[in-house]
């Protein structure tokens, strides 16, 4: 009920406040990387970021009002997309580099030491360039991230019980709030109505690219884990197993 009274400005301000702090890898990086050392650094960082991602999701107005099962399903469907959008945002002002954290920055070429990762790095760099061209604003970025989370599991099996139906309807209302907020953020940029519509289209279309890279990244991580290149543990393992077992 309180959400009905919350306008886009307040919604954006709440999700801006929910933004996680910078996360540091805090490891002595021994260069040149080996396949294992790079994969271990990437997965260690992802594991730390995942813990803060749960905290972030909980601060999105209305998220905790969804059923616990919806909360779990949404997070397990989108975690890598969220990590990738964060990476893109950190890297947007650093052409040719991927800023995984303030103390873990990689050039495209450094991806050579991990089999199959260069292709993923290139897709991430291409998405970053596109966001750079569009001059993505922080307000828009936080809306896109919330959109990824709330949209991640929308086309799965239809709700059966009344609790599931109620949660589903709350989820749809929440998505409306996020879309309203993104539209509002775009409206503040001094564009014509047509330019605003086009910008909304371009930004949301980029989300399908991020979903695609995330799927590639998921396959890659599963391969690395299967080949014992990297040990995956803790929350990341739980999320990954969740992902592989659900197909």
């Amino acid at each position: 009920h309180h959400r009905a009274a919350m306008g886009p400005e307040e919604f954006i301000s709440r999700i801006m406040e929910a933004e996680p702090p910078d996360i540091y890898l805090m490891e002595d990086l021994k260069k040149p990387f080996t396949e294992t050392s790079m994969m271990m650094s990437l997965t260690n960082l992802a594991d730390k970021e995942l813990v803060l991602m749960i905290s972030w999701a909980k601060k999105i107005p209305g998220f905790l009002e969804l059923s616990l099962s919806d909360q779990i399903h949404l997070l397990k469907c989108c975690w890598l997309e969220i990590l990738m959008l964060g990476l893109i945002w950190r890297s947007v002002d650093h052409p040719g580099k991927l800023i995984f954290s303030p103390d873990f920055k990689l050039n495209r070429e450094e991806g050579q030491c991990v089999e199959g990762i260069m292709e993923i790095f290139d897709m991430l760099l291409a998405a970053t360039s596109r966001f750079r061209e569009l001059k993505l604003r922080r307000e828009e970025y936080v809306c896109l991230k919330a959109m990824i989370l709330l949209n991640s599991n929308l086309c799965s099996s239809s709700p059966q019980t009344s609790e599931e139906l109620e949660s589903r309807s709350k989820l749809l209302r929440l998505l409306d709030s996020v879309i309203d907020s993104l539209v509002w953020a775009i409206s503040k940029l001094g564009l014509t109505t047509q330019q605003q519509t086009l910008r909304l289209g371009h930004l949301t279309m980029l989300l399908s690219h991020i979903r695609h890279v995330s799927n590639k990244g998921m396959d890659h991580l599963c391969t690395m884990k299967r080949k014992n290149v990297v040990l995956v543990y803790d929350l990341l393992l739980e999320m990954l197993d969740a992902n592989t077992s659900s197909g």
């Binding site: 730390k48 813990v51 749960i54 739980e238 969740a242």
Partner: peptide, 24 residues
């Protein structure tokens, strides 16, 4: 396996009222 058992850490972090930063 129930969702709760399958996603023990995730479940715990979602339900816990203390900051996950502390748990990390």
């Amino acid at each position: 396996t129930s969702l709760k058992e399958k996603h023990k850490i995730l479940h715990q972090l979602l339900q816990n009222s203390t900051s996950p930063v502390d748990l990390a």
